[in-house]
Write a protein that binds this DNA or RNA. Structure first.
Lengths: 176, 176
DNA sequence: GGACCATCGTTTGTCCCACAAACGACTCAG
DNA sequence: CTGAGTCGTTTGTGGGACAAACGATGGTCC
């Protein structure tokens, strides 16, 4: 239990490392894709839209972990830039299917190159062998999480920060 | 593919993978550390403060990539919870050095366990061998980036999204 | 010693963005 | 036709980050 069952857990720095990496990724990509309506966001949307069947906005939002209301103005801008188009589904007129325009596809192509370069640069600290492995590992882990944990109850344990009344010359008066 | 420069660049999914991973990390950690004043933020601060010499707020902020003004109320709350203390540096009275309290250290200890567990769970999709490698790779890459790129000019290339006036039956009237 | 400029931490103000809720359009079951 | 449910949009609100201004302190130059 608490005493950590013999497992010599590695330092919990993963989150921090990921945060740093992702932050840099953002900075660079956001800059490279400054012309794209919503930067990295728009890029992800475009990528998803371009792959496979034209998804509905709801599906898109769910897959990209974005709120539907956000997706609305996101697509508004992408559409204004002629990168995607909303088409009413003939089967279900409530639904809008989002498909890329030719322009969108060509832009996406260039964007992908740029992003790939940025990413490759980001992994500069790693020997080339590890880079690909890292990439694939990240993808694998992310996929596993996406599937396994739409709402995997993480209620494993919760930290208790005992109380503010410590030896700080605070007898036990406590709250009002 | 569009391919371009001979290099068979891997798909630019790294950013997305990292985003997914980091998001889950946040969700779970934020929940596990709900009692901690600023959740994962507070955790990182605590971790940094507990390691090595008591840093100044400025140093802390820089290391954690946080704005100084943010650091202020962040520490306010951590201090209110008796997890850290601000001590005026005797050499330079402008400076406040942040050091952990005993309570802070014990809380940090438990928090580290919880976080480590969350992280280990997050990597559930990876074979155990890859997990550690992934961790260390992430750490290495992140470190490299932190050092190399405080402001590494990323002005490598920028995407040009040509123009909104396309074949969309928009002759050239354009705005207003 | 005094004037000047830089730094540290705090405060204030502002802006942006995600999320919640209400709404109209539409579908489907009865 | 009525009622419940879904999809996409709009609107309102709140949180959080960043910018700038401020007091406090320190260092420098004369």
């Amino acid at each position: 239990m608490s005493a950590s069952t013999s497992e010599d857990l590695p330092g919990p720095d993963l989150g921090w490392s990921l945060a740093v990496l992702l932050r840099r990724w953002h900075e660079h990509v956001e800059q490279a894709l400054a012309d794209l309506p919503h930067g990295s966001r728009g890029f992800h949307v475009l990528t998803t839209v371009a792959a496979g069947e034209p998804p509905t906005q709801a599906a898109l939002a769910e897959r990209l972990l974005i709120d539907r209301s956000v997706m609305t103005y996101l697509l508004d801008d992408l559409e204004a830039a002629d990168l995607v188009r909303r088409r009413v589904d003939s089967k279900d007129r409530r639904v809008r299917r989002v498909c890329p325009t030719d322009h969108g596809l060509s832009v996406l192509g260039r964007a992908e190159e740029l992003v790939a370069h940025v990413e490759e640069r980001m992994l500069g600290g790693l020997p080339p062998t590890q880079r690909e492995l890292f990439r694939s590992s990240a993808a694998t882990a992310a996929d596993a999480i996406r599937l396994s944990a739409p709402e995997t109850d993480p209620c494993e344990a919760v930290l208790r920060v005992v109380s503010p009344d410590v030896e700080t010359s605070r007898p036990a008066s406590d709250q009002a």
